[in-house]
Design a protein around this nucleic acid. Sequence first.
DNA 1: CTGAAAGCGCTTACAG
DNA 2: CTGAAAGCGCTTACAG
Lengths: 332, 332
Amino acid sequence: MKNVTIADVAEQAEVSKSTVSQYLNKRYDYMGEKTKQRIQDAIEKLGYQPNIVARSLKQKSTKTIGVIVANILHNFTTEVTRAIEDVCHTSDFHTIICNADDDPVKEKHYIEMLRAKQVDGLIVFPTGDNKDLYQKMLDSSYPVVFMDRNLEEMDIPAIMLHNEKAAALAVEHFVEKGYRRIGMITTSILNHTTPRKERVEGYKKALQKYDIPIQTDYLISVESQSVQAELEELLHLERAPEAILAGNDLVLIEILKFAKLNGYRIPDDLAVIGIDDVSFASFYVPAITTVAQPTFKMGKAAAEMLLKKIQKQKTENTSLRFEPTLMIRDSV
Amino acid sequence: MKNVTIADVAEQAEVSKSTVSQYLNKRYDYMGEKTKQRIQDAIEKLGYQPNIVARSLKQKSTKTIGVIVANILHNFTTEVTRAIEDVCHTSDFHTIICNADDDPVKEKHYIEMLRAKQVDGLIVFPTGDNKDLYQKMLDSSYPVVFMDRNLEEMDIPAIMLHNEKAAALAVEHFVEKGYRRIGMITTSILNHTTPRKERVEGYKKALQKYDIPIQTDYLISVESQSVQAELEELLHLERAPEAILAGNDLVLIEILKFAKLNGYRIPDDLAVIGIDDVSFASFYVPAITTVAQPTFKMGKAAAEMLLKKIQKQKTENTSLRFEPTLMIRDSV
DNA sequence: CTGAAAGCGCTTACAG
DNA sequence: CTGAAAGCGCTTACAG
């Protein structure tokens, strides 16, 4: 049951290990036809499969990248991840996905683990709380690109949505439909992540543009398990909002659950727009108006940028912004 | 920028590489306190990180398992995969997920690739069309377990749903609610996979139990993109069905889209049950009655079984069946 | 209590 | 056109 190695093939084919290795790596330049044939026969006879671990050790490249996502539960995350895998696959790279679960400690653990595993580069949705680690990667010019979030002070390129615009698109649509009492709910007030900050900013600016005063009690940031309770309160205000922008997919789901449970009809009692074009948006009853992120393009861009870095191609270290698009349906 | 290796640590700490290695592997048995301390200091000073690739080569174990899923688009698949990752994580194993996309050629490619990468074992949702490969793994007593589907002739344990019962639960519920004209739609007639076959069988047996004649035109098996067209036809039959069992999540979604598009009210015009408890079932309007698979338990069982095999623990090579549960909501 | 040496399965510069 | 030798960064049986 001993594993067959390159030495066995060499012996069987009566050539040296070097020659077999050349053959495997398709460096045929001066190789005789008969030699090739003998090697091929030996490989088949022995059922030889190269050991990639040994190759990686020698070549100092695993042809593998790591992806550390902040939270796998977001629709955005799974779609982006899929796109990354697609691109890597066509470049013959493998992908290891790790879920940091919004926990900097886990993030640190995964970064170290993946580097120990010698992955050639990393795409990370940064929690933001491991700046020393990020800096260390930068210092050793290890290939990294950020996704979804960025760190201002840090010279690591990030792939991001144009978040302000995403929120603005939603607010504008509400306004066009005649709404002026517009609330917004986001998750995770604690870690001040880029998308949340920027989306809130976009919401505020858009309201200002229409001379609608910003009401602080219309702007809620809580963990998703508290969304329903907050909503309950919000909708019992004297002048309760009539439209709500959900900062992400998890918030949207909580709003829909709440509406169903409490008999709010959408959009008659409450208009809703969600950022993130969730899978069920088009066939929900009513179909949900959303602001879609170009998840596939974003994942593709991140993967391509990272692969270029890995291949030491000159890349400008600049972040990229992607445009959201409003998917008008029936919830407004 | 040279990588720091165990040799550098040894030099810095003025001990041998062996001693450093012992330290790293926590074989402290006879190690002097001062030695330990010196090594620890050297590691910190140099920022040493062990190279897992080198270790794997020597130890002939990568502490990594591969998971080859038939189709990542199924809700079932993502949930099972997550459970597998959880279990592996607590056992300090890593997971590489590959999507065969229901294509035996891709499946073969991934199996070979993962074995070349020296993963310690494989969980596969088999397409069924690579029996020679499966047999080869069996012959070399390579650890494998199947998920969701099995191959009768093959002595590889499989983790499966009690599929007949899943369909029966749905049919029984329809009947209890007074329905007798009950149709069923499944995907993929081509590859005769275990779940599809067994669910159809369960549907037929349940109807027989209630003396309801099986109408062949009520039983549809097509690719998901054709579901809506078939439904159109089905619902215009002379005696059209009034209730439909969706064989999996993708079919359910197509049915919901169709109903929405064509103004069928659920359950009044059409009652629906889906096998697979999709994420939106509870807050869809109306909430969808489903048959849930214990995805977490199933993933956990598969991972545990595989890890046991890897650790050469005696395991009975027997398949396991899991019980479905009916989630009664408002679509019937 | 610690070290020298062999070896895991490859690749690669070099020699011929 | 092909081979001998060194080396990737570890681990481990053995010697002392």
